[in-house]
Amino acid sequence: NITNLCPFDEVFNATRFASVYAWNRKRISNCVADYSVLYNFAPFFAFKCYGVSPTKLNDLCFTNVYADSFVIRGNEVSQIAPGQTGNIADYNYKLPDDFTGCVIAWNSNKLDSKVGGNYNYLYRLFRKSNLKPFERDISTEIYQAGNKPCNGVAGFNCYFPLRSYGFRPTYGVGHQPYRVVVLSFELLHAPATVCGPKKST
């Protein structure tokens, strides 16, 4: 009989979020998941679920829940969905086509923008091939755009693969920082350890 609540607040209220190319993952297990707390949290810009209804989450049990978190621009949030393409979905964070879970995003301009620009948040701009679902690539190898080998030196046709967002408070909404948490639900042939409040007695 599990009684402790799942530590969703640790994920959602973290002081610093990860850059999207180096997205953070927390495994959540052996706890009671009260999703209504999240669902009623006012400032969400997006709360979209795939393969599961957000209002039914509290009735369900899962083997594991993974909480992935990172920061992207407002106009990139739409790429955090199954079957998407674009710089983020291709080179930074890719969801599987059969994704079961929820994508939760909110504007973090007050936290993550600075006058003069916040350059701490990076994304991958160049990559030889697209990421596989949930693949994480933190390499900083110089990207070779031409035929000539770069030998690890940036220059003509040789690019550092990461780019900084440089968030400023005055940017338009599409270019403002958004914090994103992706909850993915794993249902294995194993005992369920993460259940909603109704199922955990």
Rank of each mutant, 00 (worst) to 15 (best):
residue 167 F to W: 04
residue 61 C to H: 11
residue 180 V to T: 03
residue 98 D to E: 09
residue 83 G to L: 08
residue 9 D to T: 12
residue 56 K to T: 10
residue 2 I to A: 14
residue 49 C to H: 00
residue 97 D to F: 06
residue 3 T to S: 12
residue 52 V to K: 02
residue 102 C to I: 05
residue 124 R to A: 04
residue 129 S to I: 08
residue 198 K to E: 13
residue 155 G to K: 11
residue 74 G to W: 02
residue 71 V to C: 04
residue 76 E to L: 01
residue 87 N to D: 11
residue 73 R to D: 08
residue 56 K to C: 07
residue 96 P to G: 05
residue 75 N to K: 11
residue 197 P to W: 14
residue 44 F to K: 12
residue 66 Y to W: 11
residue 58 N to P: 13
residue 53 S to R: 09
residue 82 P to I: 01
residue 40 N to A: 11
residue 29 S to G: 09
residue 176 Q to D: 06
residue 173 V to S: 13
residue 74 G to K: 10
residue 97 D to S: 10
residue 74 G to F: 03
residue 34 D to E: 05
residue 95 L to N: 00
residue 95 L to S: 00
residue 8 F to T: 02
residue 163 R to N: 10
residue 181 V to K: 00
residue 139 S to W: 01
residue 81 A to L: 03
residue 149 P to C: 09
residue 44 F to C: 07
residue 198 K to M: 13
residue 81 A to K: 06
residue 188 L to N: 14
residue 35 Y to R: 05
residue 46 A to T: 15
residue 177 P to S: 05
residue 95 L to Q: 00
residue 72 I to P: 02
residue 182 V to Q: 00
residue 120 N to F: 07
residue 5 L to K: 14
residue 127 R to K: 07
residue 37 V to N: 11
residue 195 C to V: 10
residue 63 T to G: 09
residue 164 S to A: 12
residue 114 K to C: 09
residue 153 V to Q: 14
residue 25 R to G: 03
residue 118 N to L: 03
residue 32 V to G: 05
residue 129 S to Y: 08
residue 71 V to T: 07
residue 155 G to F: 06
residue 163 R to W: 06
residue 78 S to W: 06
residue 146 G to A: 10
residue 118 N to I: 04
residue 21 Y to Q: 06
residue 136 R to V: 05
residue 82 P to C: 00
residue 49 C to G: 00
residue 73 R to Q: 13
residue 135 E to L: 02
residue 95 L to I: 12
residue 40 N to G: 08
residue 6 C to K: 03
residue 119 Y to F: 12
residue 135 E to D: 08
residue 21 Y to S: 04
residue 179 R to S: 02
residue 33 A to R: 05
residue 147 N to E: 15
residue 63 T to Y: 09
residue 48 K to C: 06
residue 142 I to Q: 08
residue 105 A to S: 11
residue 40 N to S: 12
residue 104 I to K: 00
residue 155 G to D: 13
residue 152 G to W: 06
residue 38 L to M: 09
residue 191 P to Y: 07
residue 5 L to R: 13
residue 13 N to H: 03
residue 107 N to H: 04
residue 31 C to F: 05
residue 104 I to D: 00
residue 13 N to Q: 04
residue 64 N to Y: 11
residue 189 H to K: 12
residue 68 D to F: 01
residue 50 Y to E: 02
residue 82 P to R: 01
residue 184 S to Q: 08
residue 195 C to G: 11
residue 37 V to E: 10
residue 113 S to N: 09
residue 138 I to T: 14
residue 122 L to M: 15
residue 18 A to T: 06
residue 201 T to S: 14
residue 101 G to P: 00
residue 107 N to Q: 05
residue 20 V to M: 02
residue 68 D to G: 01
residue 108 S to C: 05
residue 11 V to Y: 04
residue 27 R to M: 08
residue 134 F to S: 08
residue 71 V to S: 01
residue 27 R to Q: 11
residue 52 V to A: 04
residue 107 N to T: 04
residue 195 C to I: 10
residue 151 N to S: 13
residue 6 C to A: 04
residue 17 F to E: 04
residue 196 G to A: 10
residue 161 P to F: 02
residue 71 V to F: 00
residue 25 R to C: 02
residue 196 G to K: 10
residue 56 K to Q: 14
residue 159 Y to K: 14
residue 74 G to R: 09
residue 27 R to V: 14
residue 84 Q to T: 10
residue 117 G to I: 06
residue 152 G to E: 12
residue 94 K to N: 05
residue 143 Y to R: 07
residue 70 F to E: 03
residue 65 V to R: 04
